[in-house]
Design a protein around this nucleic acid. Structure first.
Lengths: 155, 155
DNA sequence: GCTACAATCTGTAGCGACTACAGGAGCAAG
DNA sequence: CTTGCTCCTGTAGTCGCTACAGATTGTAGC
């Protein structure tokens, strides 16, 4: 199958597939006589694996590790489980933050009197950082920057 | 106050402050005779506003709009409130996704037999995308990419 | 065969929001 | 007068794509 079909089947952008190949997340595929990339089921599966892992928020370096682990089934899964646990932790922290965030945003919107800016709670709330109430939230360890800009990609 | 103090007080990286100045989110500050930037309370407040808005997930273009609104208090707050409502919607969607994500990750971790990779649920789950169960999650509209990589920045 | 158009190719540049670094200047304390 | 700190400018790197330019190849209709 050519790259277009692989892209359609996996839901991964053509450019992204080539990008994955370039950075070594996907292996260099066989080429047809005309120079076009030719993929098989194994490639489709590997790409599916990558996509699913990315959907779960693993960054590409984690994906690399997981792929390597997948390819030596005799190895211990300690490592894979550790990566997943780290990911789970990051997700839970993120959820906590977002819930607080939602409350503050909801309050802002709710209290906006729909009058002029000088009475608008949206602006006011932003202007008065509430004694580090929320602003401390962003300040934890940099947990491997697990969530890039991918949380709203797509066509 | 110099840039270092402003940075310490606001919790915003020095380089980031200069970056904000460069892209016009912060105005060019007064310079001391030695060429160093000199800030006052107004600047600190403006930066606090920016930081808080960023913490709430507004992207820099939204921040720009909000800043502009803040500076003409006679205007209607319709606009600010609209931005905040959009933001709230995006946050709620994001929370939904993350909750589903957490479940899948938790299940993965939970079911890992802690043996070899060939029996590991973490790898297995990634390899078998469960008929688009979760993978459709990433595929909505691109809601203005409101959340960049900022969700784990900091020292 | 000719033409139009689609799919693919390579290579490079751009995005957002920073972050890091090189190489230099200024300034205070010991 | 040296050490060490803060600050300066300017540029390049990060991540994970995405977009484009310009070339080639394949396919379908006339």
């Amino acid at each position: 199958m050519q790259i277009g079909e692989l892209s359609a089947r996996s839901g991964v952008n053509i450019e992204t597939i080539r990008y994955y190949e370039r950075i070594g997340v996907l292996p260099q595929p066989v080429r047809q006589s005309n120079g076009r990339r030719s993929y098989g089921e194994v490639d489709a599966q590997r790409l599916g694996f990558v996509r699913h892992a990315r959907d779960l928020g693993f960054d590409l370096s984690a994906v690399r590790t997981l792929l390597a682990l997948q390819e030596q089934p005799e190895a211990s899964c300690e490592n894979a489980s550790k990566i997943a646990r780290g990911q789970l932790e990051a997700v839970e922290e993120r959820i906590d933050r977002l819930l607080k965030l939602r409350d503050e945003l909801a309050r802002m919107v709710d209290e906006c009197s729909r009058g002029v800016v000088s009475e608008c709670r949206v602006i006011e709330t932003l202007a008065n950082p509430v004694g580090e109430g929320l602003s401390r939230l962003g300040r934890g360890r940099n947990i491997a920057n697990t969530f890039g800009s991918r949380w709203s990609r797509d066509p």
